[in-house]
């Protein structure tokens, strides 16, 4: 007994130390992120909007607006395209009686091979790459292909996140609703969904943020570089790898876009966490 008590004390002090170290690490990393963001803002303040405008004559040019528009188009296609099948597959995964044959097939295939959509998109991208130039990438067709590819890539991710959100709702409520004479879809829509909505919205935001970042990768593999409609993430990548100009003109747009990206991603993540936090507090 004495040995156990001593071991328990050691475990407790070990846990306290680990917790302290973790706290310090979080504080330091948080401070570092804030300091970096502050540095970016300072650079922007120094260079100013005039400096940004001056870069428009550079070889690559400052095309932030068109980059955002391209990213927006791709997301505008991909997000709605992924929401509906993900939601239906998650519903069928939650309660088999809610799905039709197609959604049941979808949820089963995602469960058995969640990597299949990514492999399919990768294979398609390789095919496009090998046969480069045959798809008119300068037209809206490239954007549509990118949007569809993003939707397919993120289907398993969003399905799993929605399913996890729905499963957080206590099952006794579903059983209570069904026992009270509700049909499965009524129980799902009227009892489960309202409680899972904050988590689902968080999942949607997190996935949308991830998709925003992935627009660059998608467009790169689709050989879409060098077009007038360059997504902001690809534009940033090009600046990081190709900018040959002087530091005075390179820093400001780089800083602008990095800050923009960081802000957007942090905003997505923050909103997602906020919603999930609200969900947890409600469940508690």
């Amino acid at each position: 007994m004495g040995m156990s008590a001593a071991r328990a004390r050691r475990d407790r002090s070990g846990r306290a130390l680990a917790s302290f170290v973790e706290g310090v690490a979080i504080w330091l990393s948080g401070t570092l992120i804030v300091a970096l963001a502050a540095a970016f803002i300072a650079i922007l303040a120094i260079d100013g909007w005039q400096g940004l405008k001056a870069t428009s004559s550079s070889p690559i040019g400052f095309d932030l607006t068109t980059s955002l528009v391209a990213s927006g188009y791709i997301l505008g296609i991909a997000v709605p395209l992924v929401i509906v099948p993900s939601f239906l597959a998650a519903a069928a995964g939650y309660d088999v009686s809610l799905g039709g044959p197609l959604t049941r097939w979808l949820v089963t295939s995602l469960r058995v091979g969640p990597m299949t959509p990514a492999i399919a998109v990768g294979a398609a991208a390789l095919w496009f790459s090998v046969r480069g130039g045959q798809v008119p990438m300068y037209s809206s067709q490239g954007i549509i292909i990118a949007g569809i590819a993003l939707a397919v890539l993120n289907l398993p991710v969003l399905t799993r996140r929605i399913l996890a959100g729905v499963r957080e709702v206590p099952d006794r409520w579903r059983i209570a609703a069904l026992a009270a004479g509700a049909a499965p879809h009524t129980a799902f829509l009227n009892v489960i969904m309202p409680r899972a909505l904050p988590t689902i919205l968080g999942a949607l935001l997190a996935t949308a943020g991830r998709m925003f970042g992935e627009t660059a990768i998608i467009v790169v593999v689709l050989n879409y570089a060098g077009t007038p409609l360059t997504p902001v993430t690809l534009d940033l990548w090009r600046r990081l790898t190709q900018q040959p100009g002087g530091a005075a003109t390179a820093v400001a747009p780089l800083a602008t876009e990095t800050l923009l990206l960081v802000t957007v991603i942090v905003a997505f993540r923050f909103a997602a966490r906020l919603l999930q936090g609200r969900r947890r507090s409600e469940a508690a």
Partner: peptide, 17 residues
Amino acid sequence: PALRRRMGMIFGEPATL
């Protein structure tokens, strides 16, 4: 669903919605 409305079930732990 109609059957369950004819035969109401009350659980041990209150199944309050």
